[in-house]
Design a protein around this nucleic acid. Structure first.
Lengths: 194, 194
DNA sequence: GATCACCTACTAACTAGTAGATAGACCAAC
DNA sequence: GTTGGTCTATCTACTAGTTAGTAGGTGATC
């Protein structure tokens, strides 16, 4: 309750942005302390261990993601527009470098080296994102606005993989535009504009 | 030249498999030394720094990848079959857990935290893989065996992203089968067997 | 006898995490 | 309204272990 953003909030936000840069083993308590302006040990007061800090961070990330999707469901009703809006959100995040990678997609690659409680959290994000995409695709198919060959579930997994792969490619090429280059045809294929 | 596999070979192979597990910051000289059966310091005799070790490792990985693709070009001529063979290779690697992730795809996520010389190497792999896929798709389109909407280049980038994303999803779900589940419809869409 | 591959022994910096002190805020009892 | 107790957030100072990397020595091989 210390003003608008508490110290633990600052720690979480800072840790998230460091995590997005280089993964779980790519940052340390010292890095966080330097940015937030407290001492190394003070972080332990808020989060007893690094695993717990990152678990909390991912849990909060998932909450925000679910809230964002709930808002999207309220504001946009057309399934094709919902997919476009989801992709557009990431396109903007990558373009302005504010959060140029999905926390969970990044950590999915490091899973064999991650504490179990974090793996659970990452897996849950994949499941819930896939479930939402499946529901959007199902609705779109029923309405006749979205077109694909197999099941909605399979198409959802493919869609999610393509978006995550596009993040990887954008990073590999060092070019934010690559993300849109890959995802735009993906949307076009599902909802052809004539 | 010490017998069939030299120590530096062993170090490279070991480092690769450790890298595939948890990324650049997910392993140390000590980890390699323990597996290979030499002392920590001996690794420096072969590779002066970690950055140099990993740079060499990626360069060799790229050589092997290019050799594999050259062999594929020799053995299989049909473009659709070439794509299927490429995906099949990864499906087997992931299923038997021998090398369940592309070294460059994994490190692409960590790029902001990677030494510059490694980033160059990773980027080069993305470019050469994309170039090969583009040539296969172009040939397939010319022959009429592969079908897609936009340019071959755009479709190649999308294909590559989807494959990399499928690796990520397989890891996230802890289920190797996920890779095939995502990539099979991808091949089916490009070359429908109706 | 030079070179190679390895060794022991070491360093400086960094890792997450702990112990215990301090300073301020809140809240009661007197 | 002052006193005393508790809670919270931070600090300094520390530990044990790990990190990449270095210096210099040894024994075998060409």
């Amino acid at each position: 309750m210390t003003g608008s953003t508490s110290t633990s909030d600052k720690i979480l936000r800072c840790a998230r942005s460091l995590l997005i840069q280089g993964g779980y083993n790519g940052f340390s308590y010292a890095d966080i302390a330097k940015v937030v302006g407290i001492r190394n040990a003070s972080i332990h007061h808020h989060f007893p261990s690094k695993a717990e800090l990152v678990r909390t961070l991912v849990a909060r990330y998932r909450e925000e993601a679910e809230a964002g999707i709930a808002q999207l469901e309220r504001q946009v009703s057309d399934p094709a527009a919902q997919l476009a809006s989801y992709v557009g959100y990431w396109e903007r995040c990558i373009a302005d470098a504010s959060a140029p990678f999905c926390v969970c997609a990044l950590m999915a690659g490091e899973i064999p080296a991650l504490p179990a409680e974090i793996v659970t959290e990452v897996r849950a994000h994949f499941r819930s994102l896939s479930a939402w995409l499946t529901s959007v695709l199902e609705r779109g198919a029923r309405q006749g606005s979205l077109h694909f060959a197999g099941t909605a579930k399979a198409e959802a997994e493919s869609f999610m993989a393509c978006v995550h792969g596009a993040m990887l490619s954008a990073r590999a090429y060092g070019d934010p535009g690559t993300f849109g280059l890959i995802t735009r045809p993906l949307l076009e294929r599902l909802a052809p504009r004539h």
